[in-house]
């Protein structure tokens, strides 16, 4: 009985630790991304890549520390399976949209400048 209680206390302590670690690392990651942009340490594609990586790390930190993602058991496995399914759909939606829209001007046989001109003409007609 006493052991059980102590074991329970151990789990609660580690849960508390998880929340504190999660909160502090999320804070550090947020400030790091902010500092990179404001301080202009990096530029261009490198800067964008750096802040996207920081956001991805923070996603994992919050998933593990706050949402207890990755814990064991049948329930947790179902949560993970639906999460990965969502991730696949998300990549198709976001990746597919960006891919198609980036090629739109080309596929319409218009240069971006012609496209802008065409759209301005259309809006001047007052559609």
């Amino acid at each position: 009985m006493r052991d059980e209680k102590q074991a329970g206390k151990g789990i609660e302590d580690s849960a508390m630790q998880r929340y504190v670690i999660g909160f502090l690392s999320a804070l550090v990651l947020t400030l790091a991304a902010y500092g990179l942009v404001v301080g202009q340490v990096l530029t261009g594609a490198m800067l964008i890549a750096a802040i996207v990586v920081l956001a991805a790390i923070q996603l994992v930190v919050q998933l593990v520390c706050f949402l207890h993602f990755g814990s064991k058991g049948a329930d947790a496995r179902l949560h993970q399976a639906t999460f990965y399914l969502m991730l696949i759909i998300l990549v198709i939606i976001v990746g597919g949209s960006l891919w198609i829209m980036a090629n739109l001007n080309y596929n319409m046989m218009m240069s971006p400048e012609d496209m802008d001109k065409y759209m301005l003409e259309q809006s001047n007609k007052g559609f």
């Binding site: 329930d75 179902l78 949560h79 639906t82 999460f83 399914l85 969502m86 759909i89 998300l90 939606i93 976001v94 949209s97 960006l98 829209m101």
Partner: peptide, 28 residues
């Protein structure tokens, strides 16, 4: 509890897809 929590989790996953579409729209 497990069943209801899983159901709510699946709702959150569909909500993620809603936000994914809005993010894609914004980036475009």
């Amino acid at each position: 509890t497990a069943t209801k929590t899983l159901g709510f989790w699946i709702y959150l996953m569909t909500d993620c897809i809603l936000f994914a579409s809005l993010f894609a729209t914004y980036i475009v």
